[in-house]
Design a protein around this nucleic acid. Structure first.
Lengths: 143, 143
DNA sequence: TTCATATAGATGTATTTTCATCTAATCTAT
DNA sequence: ATAGATTAGATGAAAATACATCTATATGAA
């Protein structure tokens, strides 16, 4: 019989705190620089890599967004002119999103802050061969 | 010069998605069972292990709570009779929190759902011979 | 075709979280 | 002792997120 303080719990607790700590610091750095949140970055970067645009529901899956949350986030992002919406001919319920030039510029500006943050936090670990193993494990947890 | 798709970024992306995916599922399971959120669990468990009670600011540090958020979360938790507040004689700005019998019962109920979730997700990994090393890496990210 | 079901996305409402600021108590240096 | 700075915690207002539901289109089986 497993007891509470066992290994799996320790792993989850560490994962939890690590994520939150890093996330908090990164949001802080972006805010400090007068830039939007990480969620916005994720959307912009995802769209920047999709030359033909993406559907909202694809973003939802890739980024683990709550549907209603994404819908409103997109409204704001589109409102800022960072992304454009087009009706999707093949399915008239849907739409297609494409990043704008302005969106690309902002994404790049954000990367200037975000990138170094990642480098600071994770650069030192990246050498460890254990890091690869950990990445694999982390990926396996995603459903 | 580092490019964007490099190792550290892969690590962070995996950490990010893993956390969110697991967290979402766990919250879902708790909600399904009509139980409060993980944040409440964290507070209750932390207090359960503190025989002499804890100060809010200690919880704030241990659980990476935003101060104002914790303040309100505590109001709700105390409102439900799960935790009691006492004035802290040695520093009259502060207070001491102690879990109640009701709080302990609820914490246990929650564990009946939460524990198995952890076991499901992380149990399989625990065999990894260097789980400890991976945990250490995660912990090293916490500031 | 037609009815039932499923999917894409929006939106009203409630809840949670953040941000900024406030009060009261404590601490520190003079 | 006292002025200034710091800390514990609360709170109004704003923003983000979640939940439930709704509309419109699409799909699939009879």
């Amino acid at each position: 019989m497993k007891i509470m303080g066992s290994e799996p719990t320790a792993f989850w607790v560490a994962l939890n705190l690590a994520y939150r700590s890093v996330h908090r610091d990164m949001e802080e750095a972006l805010k400090q620089a007068g830039l939007p949140s990480l969620r916005w970055y994720d959307v912009l970067w995802e769209l920047e890599r999709a030359p033909d645009g993406m559907r909202p529901f694809e973003l939802e899956n890739d980024l683990l967004f709550e549907q209603s949350n994404l819908s409103r986030t997109l409204r704001r992002i589109v409102g800022e002119g960072l992304v454009e919406e087009f009706t999707y001919a093949a399915d008239r319920r849907g739409k297609v999103l494409r990043i704008t030039a302005k969106g690309r510029r902002l994404r790049k500006q954000m990367w200037a802050v975000y990138g170094p943050q990642i480098e600071n936090k994770f650069g030192p670990l990246a050498d460890t061969e254990d890091a690869d193993k950990l990445i694999a494990i982390l990926k396996s947890l995603i459903s």
